[in-house]
């Protein structure tokens, strides 16, 4: 499944980049993720609970940040397993400053599903992806706003 999207944020690229590299923040803003535990340099153990309409599953697996080019881009490698199927995704994230105070975040990648999810979930997958990315962007926006309102 192709994953693609972009959103404009009112923050400079380096700030967003830093935020995305922070495990706690990432755990907070990534939809469904309940736990993100560092297991090494840029590698994490992740636990996620996805509840969406007819589907509800507990996933566990790894998350890795690779090919870091601060503050322009990185690649997120995700492997999540569950009883209802497994997800493996490689997503490249690009941060492009559109002005000194605004940045366009775009992601482009592929998610590979296996098992029950692949076999029965086709009808709902792109919808799930759309909604998850909407939630992610919204959460990141809120996070940035909170940061802006905090005294420096």
């Amino acid at each position: 499944m192709h994953l693609k999207g972009s959103h404009q944020f009112n923050a400079p690229a380096h700030q967003i980049f830093k935020m995305l590299m922070d495990a706690d923040t990432l755990a907070r803003i990534t939809p469904g993720v309940s736990e993100l535990e560092a297991t090494g340099q840029d590698t994490y153990k992740a636990i996620a609970n996805v509840k969406m309409g007819p589907v509800s599953g507990s996933f566990s697996g790894n998350l890795e940040v690779a090919e870091k080019h601060e503050p322009e881009s990185f690649v997120l490698k995700i492997q999540q397993n569950s009883k209802i199927g497994n997800v493996a995704a490689d997503v490249k994230i690009d941060l492009e400053e559109t002005s000194s105070e605004t940045t366009r975040l775009s992601f482009d990648g592929k998610a590979r599903l296996s098992g029950l999810l692949a076999r029965t979930g086709q009808r709902v997958l792109s919808g799930v992806a759309n909604t998850l990315s909407k939630q992610f962007f919204k959460a990141l926006e809120e996070e940035l706003e909170n940061l802006a309102h905090q005294p420096a």
Binding site: R112, L113, S114, A118, R119, T120, Q122, R123
Partner: peptide, 14 residues
């Protein structure tokens, strides 16, 4: 089958 060999329409919903 997708390119990973997953049968992606394995039910009467698809």
């Amino acid at each position: 089958y997708d390119e990973d060999g997953q049968l992606i329409n394995g039910s009467y919903m698809d």
